[in-house]
């Protein structure tokens, strides 16, 4: 340990800076509130963004007719699929 190193003095300065004013201070409460708000906004954003994507894709799929009810009788075997029209 080198006594000349001003660890205690520097650490106090750094601690005051790091904690935005220290435990239970106005700055810490504001940071907490902002963080909670960002978290909630992100959660709502996940829902809204996904809803848009799914709605768009669903409408596209329905419009394409790709999922129309097949007018077929399906019979299958172990290795092949036989599709026969009515």
């Amino acid at each position: 340990m080198f006594d000349a190193f001003p660890f205690d003095e520097w650490s106090e300065d750094i601690a005051e800076f790091w904690t935005y004013g220290g435990e239970g201070s106005t700055g810490t409460y504001i940071m907490t509130a902002l963080g909670v708000a960002a978290m909630l906004i992100a959660l709502v954003g996940f829902v809204v963004l996904e809803q848009r994507k799914l709605r768009r894709q669903t409408e596209m799929l329905r419009a394409s007719g790709a999922l129309e009810r097949p007018n077929v009788v399906v019979a299958t075997t172990t290795t092949t699929t036989i599709i026969t029209s009515d």
Partner: peptide, 12 residues
């Protein structure tokens, strides 16, 4: 609590 001294940089 999120505003506690233990929940951030803390040299102690």
């Amino acid at each position: 609590a999120p505003w506690a001294a233990q929940m951030g940089p803390n040299l102690q």
